[in-house]
């Protein structure tokens, strides 16, 4: 890519320093069903933000509202300083959108497709640069109907980058891709991030969010249940360790935020005995995520959480 947006310089204007996305109390209902239920969200300039959640959590609806493709029922939304519901053409030139549909079956080649869509932008990025940036140089002359799923997604990204957007929306960009194609796709996004483009992506793949995102927002049933860098996701849940050992016929478990203290008490009470099968474990990212979206009960609800043995 020859031209990409740079992160705002220290002397940047107020507009440039303001967050790329600012959402307060966003709600959206389809009939009686509330699909987005009071979401607060802030995406900083230059960051990659992943909305992570199971299917039907409200990810796509949220993103489509931010893209201006869908109306909201309540709340405040500012994207690049403007309300997407009323923003005009010049605003749309500053965002890039990769939707879920694949645009399969197109009779035009990669190059022809990009050349065609270049017409709609005030100033479009060069087709050759875009093709190179998404790694489609070899496939430039191939009709898009004949592209693989991964190549087609990369063409979509190239199209979304055509207006040199400051902010890029990607809705489940790697769903249905094989592991190799997913990795290739990640590389493309990493390159964009390095160029300073702010990226908001949705995914239901935990590893994708962990790999790509600076911050992850976990969304479940229309509510944002956690926002944190991937390594800090789950905060308190994450800090809960499980101490487990064999006693008699069964296992005893203690869930605690202070495993050292538990161990000290435990060992002091049995100064000479070996504690069989003693383990201290902390929940992995996946476990925390599943707890956040309510797929499994949070550890600590079944046992005493403040460290006392039963």
């Amino acid at each position: 890519m020859t031209t990409t947006q740079q992160a705002p310089a220290p002397g940047a204007t107020a507009a440039e320093r303001s967050p790329a996305v600012r959402v307060r109390g966003l709600t959206k209902r389809y009939g009686q069903r509330t699909v987005v239920d009071g979401i607060d969200l802030e995406v900083r300039r230059g960051e990659v933000f992943a909305l992570l959640g199971p299917n039907g959590a409200g990810k796509t609806t949220t993103v489509e509202i931010l893209e201006g493709l869908r109306r909201r029922d309540g709340g405040e939304v500012l994207v690049l300083g403007e309300d997407p519901a009323t923003a005009g053409r010049s605003w749309r030139d500053r965002i890039g959108v990769v939707g879920q549909a694949t645009g399969a079956g197109d009779a035009l080649t990669v190059r022809e497709t990009l050349d065609h869509y270049a017409v709609y932008h005030a100033e479009a990025e060069g087709t050759d640069e875009l093709i190179a940036a998404v790694g489609l140089t070899e496939a430039a002359g191939v009709r898009s109907a004949r592209l693989s799923g991964g190549q087609r997604r990369r063409l979509e990204v190239a199209l979304s980058m055509q207006g040199r957007p400051e902010l890029l929306f990607l809705d489940e960009p790697t769903t249905g891709l094989d592991p190799v194609a997913r990795r290739q796709f990640w590389t493309v996004l990493e390159r964009l991030r390095a160029g300073g483009t702010t990226i908001l992506l949705t995914t239901h793949y935990l590893d994708e969010a962990a790999h790509l995102a600076d911050r992850v927002g976990v969304i479940d049933a229309g509510r944002l249940v956690d926002v944190a860098p991937p390594e800090e996701m789950g905060g308190e849940l994450r800090a809960r360790s499980t101490v487990r050992w064999r006693e008699g016929d069964g296992f005893r478990t203690v869930v605690t935020t202070e495993p050292s203290a538990v161990l000290r008490d435990l060992l002091a009470a049995r100064p000479l005995a070996e504690l069989p099968d003693l383990t201290v474990t902390r929940p992995g990212l996946e476990e925390v995520y599943l707890q956040l979206v309510g797929a499994v009960p949070a550890s600590g609800t079944a046992t005493d959480a403040d460290g006392g043995t039963r």
């Binding site: 201006g68 053409r89 010049s90 749309r92 959108v97 939707g99 549909a101 694949t102 645009g103 709609y120």
Partner: peptide, 18 residues
Amino acid sequence: VTDTARGITDRFRSLPMA
């Protein structure tokens, strides 16, 4: 209907065009 099903209509709606 095929443009809508393939997401082309939505792409047009998100592009800086009339």
